[in-house]
Design a binder for these strands. Structure first.
Length: 160
DNA sequence: GCCAACGTTGGC
DNA sequence: GCCAACGTTGGC
């Protein structure tokens, strides 16, 4: 079988669920993904132990705040069946669930916050999904080199 | 608040 | 199957 991604970037709006909350909770279920591409990545590629860059979107500034890992593989997202839930999907049924989620567990916070500006400015990260304009995918594969680079940046003093 | 990017929906 | 309309994302 071909190699699969072992690292991911998960976007979350900190006003909805922040990395600090994940650290407090320890683990959480990643409900609410309603995009087929992101669902397929979870279903087909994501495995327990995969690394997760926790990214704060719609934040000031946006950027990567911490590390986490997948701790349970894809299973049905119950919110799709909840009456009146904002993520309810009347077209999905428990017999054939359309939407899945994984569980994630907090690892450590990064040495420091690595902003989107800094990711964009780094030539080694030019191919990273999150720096590309218009990329709205909330779950993205990250290469091993990109993972190492982001972690390395977080351990380095911010050059001004 | 603006708006570009992009996914989804539905008429045809 | 095309594509215009619409809704959402998310940086700025």
């Amino acid at each position: 079988m071909a190699s699969r991604p072992r690292f991911w970037l998960f976007k979350s709006e900190p006003s909805a669920y922040s990395f600090e909350e994940l650290q407090r909770d320890g683990t959480t279920f990643w409900d609410g993904v309603r995009n087929y591409q992101a669902r397929n990545l979870m279903r087909d590629q994501m495995r327990v132990g995969d690394g997760v860059l926790f990214y704060h979107s719609n934040a000031k500034p946006p950027g990567v705040v911490g590390l986490a890992e997948v701790c349970r593989e894809a299973y049905p997202d119950p919110t799709q069946f909840e009456q009146g839930h904002p993520h309810q999907d009347p077209g999905s049924s428990p017999e054939d669930p359309r939407w899945l989620m994984v569980d994630v567990r907090a690892r450590e916070a990064l040495g420091r916050f690595v902003s989107l500006d800094e990711l964009k400015a780094d030539p080694q990260l030019a191919e990273m999904g999150v720096v590309r304009r218009g990329n709205r995918l909330s779950i993205q594969p990250v290469s091993p080199a990109e993972w190492r680079r982001v972690v390395a940046l977080s351990k380095r003093k911010l050059s001004v």
